[in-house]
Amino acid sequence: MKAIVCTKFGLPNTLKFIEKENPQSKEDEVLVEVKACSVNFPDTLIIQGKYQFRPDFPFSPGSDIAGVVAEVGNSVKHLKKGDEVVGFIPFGGFAEKAVVKAKDCFAKPKGMSMVNASAFLLAYGTSYHALKDRADLQKDETVLILGASGGVGLTALELAKLMGAKVIAAASSDEKLALCKDFGADEIINYNKENLKERVNELTKGKGVDVIYDPVGGNFSEQALRAIAWKGRHLVIGFANGEIPKIPINLTLLKGASIVGVFWGAFAQKEPKKSLENIRELLQWFAQGKLKPHIDKVYSLENAPKALEAMMNRETKGKIVINMTI
């Protein structure tokens, strides 16, 4: 099979496009012929050795896949060879075949393209876990989304609106904010042109925001936290700008606020039943037409390093996907 592999930690241009042997599945796993794999920010970290774990070399990045079951382990009952599926793996998705734990592999809804399916689980799973389980978002609360035009940002925007919240979308350009408006944002902030804290307080008439969805980090995190409402929840999703913020912890005391970590992958492993319930809800909403992944660009497997570079340079809006069939 063909694959993109990382043989040493580094930038995307150090990755190699090679032919390698098919991976072998165990009795509780399925071998999937990968048709598409979306690109997520952790993929840019794992190849640099900056993620929570470091796979042994050589490995392929990519965690969010869609494809067709090629082999089924002896203990797997809910899937069979030939089934179209979506799955989540720690790494290994930038390849023509990948092994997935059966518990992390689900039937793909009919009518969902492979490209859309590959862009679904991690982004929507993260955002729904964040807003539902970690923030306990209530109807009519106000949510501030940083990096709102990004892969997880847009999903958070969709879900927050679906859950009855008011959404303030913040992003780095007017073009990105126009997309946020198309996805239902009530208010927008260009934080490259406006003071984030002052603009949030202006839009909320001094009350502040109930929930901050923060996949960006850096100095924007503190600016946002200074505009949080009483008993607000600041959701830590990631650090797309490359800087982990140093927050004055007294800000939480003054507002009775909480800083809440969100790690969907660990949640899915430690609370599988609850995670499965969330996934079923999300897939049902997709089937009902209430959720629609925004695919910005599609790359071939050979050009996957260019996709990772675009992700690192924050050149994308919504999701970018590696399509194995082009």
Rank of each mutant, 00 (worst) to 15 (best):
N250R: 11
N250A: 07
N250H: 11
L251T: 12
T252D: 08
L253K: 13
L253Y: 14
L253G: 12
L254W: 13
L254Y: 14
L254S: 14
L254T: 14
K255D: 12
K255L: 03
K255C: 07
K255H: 12
K255F: 00
G256V: 01
G256Y: 05
G256I: 02
G256H: 07
A257F: 01
A257Y: 03
A257I: 02
S258F: 00
S258P: 00
I259W: 03
I259P: 15
V260I: 12
G261T: 11
V262G: 08
W264N: 02
W264T: 03
W264I: 00
G265V: 01
G265H: 01
G265L: 00
G265N: 08
A266Y: 00
A266Q: 04
A266P: 01
F267L: 04
F267E: 10
F267V: 03
A268L: 05
A268I: 00
A268E: 12
A268F: 09
Q269I: 05
Q269A: 10
Q269H: 10
E271Y: 12
E271T: 12
P272W: 06
P272H: 13
K273L: 14
K273A: 14
K273T: 15
K273S: 15
K274P: 15
K274A: 15
K274E: 15
S275F: 08
S275N: 13
S275H: 13
L276I: 10
L276P: 09
E277Y: 07
E277W: 04
N278V: 00
N278Y: 01
N278K: 03
N278G: 09
N278A: 01
I279Y: 06
I279E: 02
I279H: 04
R280E: 12
R280N: 12
E281Q: 06
L282N: 02
L282Y: 01
L282E: 00
L283P: 11
L283A: 02
L283T: 04
L283D: 02
Q284D: 13
Q284G: 09
Q284A: 08
W285C: 00
W285M: 02
W285D: 05
W285L: 01
W285A: 02
F286D: 03
F286Q: 05
F286P: 10
F286S: 04
F286A: 01
A287D: 14
A287T: 14
A287K: 13
Q288R: 04
Q288K: 07
Q288M: 07
Q288G: 08
Q288P: 10
Q288E: 15
Q288W: 02
G289H: 02
G289E: 04
K290N: 07
K290S: 06
K290E: 06
L291G: 08
L291P: 09
L291N: 09
K292C: 06
K292I: 01
H294Q: 11
H294R: 11
I295C: 08
I295T: 05
D296Y: 04
D296H: 06
D296L: 00
K297C: 00
K297L: 01
V298K: 11
V298G: 09
Y299R: 05
Y299P: 15
Y299Q: 08
S300G: 15
S300E: 10
S300K: 10
L301Y: 15
L301M: 13
E302W: 03
E302T: 03
E302N: 11
E302K: 14
N303C: 11
N303E: 14
N303K: 15
N303T: 14
